[in-house]
Design a protein around this nucleic acid. Structure first.
Lengths: 156, 156
DNA sequence: AAACCTTTCACCCGAAAGTATGAATTGACC
DNA sequence: GGTCAATTCATACTTTCGGGTGAAAGGTTT
């Protein structure tokens, strides 16, 4: 969390440095105002989208009674039972679903706004809880146990 | 193929060397006959089983009209169409099925009596034909396209 | 407050997976 | 005999996975 702030700072510093750099090394001083504004607008809109998504992501889970598996609406009731029986947390279940969709750990990390290491931790715990060694086996296992949302891949 | 013969030779040489070694270094000369026979019996029965399995494996495919996808009975007729449409060979399909069952490349190699490198080659070609990057995606893809034998994991 | 769980993340290391390239063999087809 | 695709395998290299350990932050429970 503290690191995130540091990253923000570094990103801002880099932006400022970049602006100064182009100011002194190129001949765009005449259209500097528009250019600056454009750069800054792009940067901050990107940052805003990112932060907004992340914030929304954080509140999606805190808004639904934290971690007591009673009123969570992410998964159907029967799935809930299997999950809690195996001691699989909500976050781990999310990771499991994404694994089953064929995503790499890095992709999952990007999608859930997590570090790669975190995804690894989750999947590692997941595997021991599912009693499997590989993610491919985890997919099999999860399908057997009905832990995955029906993707309905059974068409012709 | 030539390598296999060389390996056989090496294995036999090692066996002989081992027998000679225990003959000169231990005091089991008295029960040598039974011991020798036991070792040899174990070794050759193991080798026999292995060779037999391998031979059976080889003839399983040559016995069914080589590679024309007309009378092959490994997969249902509808699957055949999808496979040939994607240019997936029979061997590749075998590998694909084992991948979908959650096996590692090494396990697949052992099961099909192939080298690890060969399995990698097959899976690599498979991935490009399925237009995927990872084996987990290949599983997804194969299920979507109905390329896998029904494992019926849809029970409660 | 203390014990506990969940979630997050870092670092290291070894194993597995995947890519690229080249090559030998075999059977089919012409 | 020559061509072609399929199969097999090697070698080398990069990326991804997975295990193990430790730790920090936030929430729950007692």
């Amino acid at each position: 969390m503290k690191r995130t702030i540091v990253y923000y700072g570094i990103a801002l510093a880099l932006l400022l440095g970049f602006l100064k750099y182009i100011e002194y090394h190129y001949i765009i001083k005449d259209l500097s105002m528009e250019f600056y504004l454009g750069i800054v607008a792009l940067f901050f809109s990107g940052l805003g989208v990112w932060a907004g998504l992340r914030w929304a992501n954080k509140h999606e889970k805190s808004a639904k009674s934290a971690n007591s598996p009673t009123t969570t609406s992410t998964a159907p009731p029967d799935v809930e039972a299997s999950l809690s029986k195996l001691g699989i947390s909500k976050r781990e279940h999310e990771v499991l679903c994404l694994i089953a969709e064929g995503h790499s750990n890095q992709e999952i990390a990007d999608q859930l706004f997590l570090s790669l290491n975190t995804v690894k931790s989750h999947s590692s715990n997941l595997f021991s809880k599912l009693d499997v060694k590989r993610r491919t086996q985890a997919i099999q296992r999860a399908k057997e146990l009905g832990l995955l949302p029906e993707t309905d891949a059974t068409f012709g």
